[in-house]
Amino acid sequence: MRERAPKLVITFRSTTDAMMMEKKCPEGTGRLIPVPREISRGCGLAWAAEPDQEEYLLGIMRENDIPWLEKKIIEFYDF
């Protein structure tokens, strides 16, 4: 039985920023996903992670000068 769980979703101004996020984040700290419909109808990539990793991820973005656009908690089938 698949279950939904809340995840933190962070969006970016460009796919380049999203791809940089994937490069800078260690394994186990999230993954690239398509921007969910709840946030945007447009194309784009977002970073999805466990909600309790927010501060850690914000630190990575500050250190690497990766600007983020929006943060939101959204439920997904667990991944």
């Binding site: 791809m19 996903i33 990539l45 089938y77």
Partner: peptide, 16 residues
């Protein structure tokens, strides 16, 4: 590179 990312996005979306 984009093709790799799109494929990963495709599989993620399948799981949803």
């Amino acid at each position: 590179v984009l093709g790799d990312i799109l494929m990963k996005s495709f599989f993620f979306t399948l799981t949803q």
